[in-house]
């Protein structure tokens, strides 16, 4: 499979999604988090960092659209030491930086591994975008799409590449469902119809330990990644 091929012409920076670093060591697992503006990507990243930082060596790349807000939120919340958080500037096009032209993000993940590595896991957070924004397989090994109940309970039915193909779909802010009239059962049924066997997690981060199902999914991904290296 493409993540495990050996590259033959490179002995400096890696040129694509090779599973190994230039020095031959296996690189960190990279998981992308995408989804619309305000759906809770940064809150999910923060909760994941707190849940996993004692068991995995972690770093985060944020893709802010026109500020450093997301990176600064994570710094302020002190979810990780500052040298483990990097912001990429995306020139008004967050989907371009995670899909069509991934070079700045690849540099960010490689620099993190050089400077604070070895790392087990890098979370790459997209800037808030639309329902078609997905990550390139050249940048991440797995991707999570985050929507929320207040964005409309018809979003799972509408589908689109993020909802349909992401390795994990998170439906966030379930605590708001009764205030905005969103039907969680309908969202679950629509997501199931769009995604088949791909997993869906409903969560509310009003209480941060509720990130546990997503953290477990990340742990399982990491275990599979580590096992493939052995």
């Amino acid at each position: 499979m493409h993540l495990d091929h050996d590259h033959t012409h490179s002995d400096a920076a890696a040129v694509s999604a090779d599973a190994h670093r230039p020095d031959g060591r296996r690189r960190a697992l990279r998981i992308g988090l995408g989804g619309p503006v305000g759906s809770g990507k940064t809150a999910t990243v923060a909760a994941l960092c707190r849940a996993l930082r004692d068991e995995l060596s972690l770093a985060v790349v944020t893709n802010d659209i026109y500020t450093r807000e997301d990176a600064e939120f994570l710094l302020r919340e002190a979810v990780l030491p500052p040298e483990r958080i990097t912001a990429v500037e995306t020139g008004a096009c967050p989907h371009t930086a995670i899909r069509d032209d991934i070079s700045a993000n690849l540099e960010a993940v490689e620099d993190l591994e050089d400077e604070v590595g070895p790392l087990d896991l890098i979370l790459v957070e997209s800037g808030g975008d639309n329902l078609t924004a997905t990550f390139s397989r050249g940048l991440v090994d797995a991707q999570v799409f985050v929507i929320d109940v207040a964005g409309g309970d018809d979003i799972p039915r509408k589908g689109g590449p993020g909802v349909t193909t992401a390795d994990l779909l998170i439906v966030n802010k379930t605590d708001l469902a009764r205030y905005v009239g969103s039907d969680l059962a309908r969202m679950a049924a629509d997501a199931k119809a769009q995604r088949g066997e791909l997993p869906v997690v409903f969560q509310s981060l009003r209480s941060e330990e509720h990130v546990a199902p997503v953290a477990d999914w990340v742990r399982a991904r990491y275990a599979a990644w580590a096992a493939a290296a052995a």
Partner: peptide, 11 residues
């Protein structure tokens, strides 16, 4: 302009 070399983020 779509050659993926990072130019889209610069003005």
């Amino acid at each position: 302009g779509r050659f993926p070399a990072g130019g889209h983020a610069h003005s």
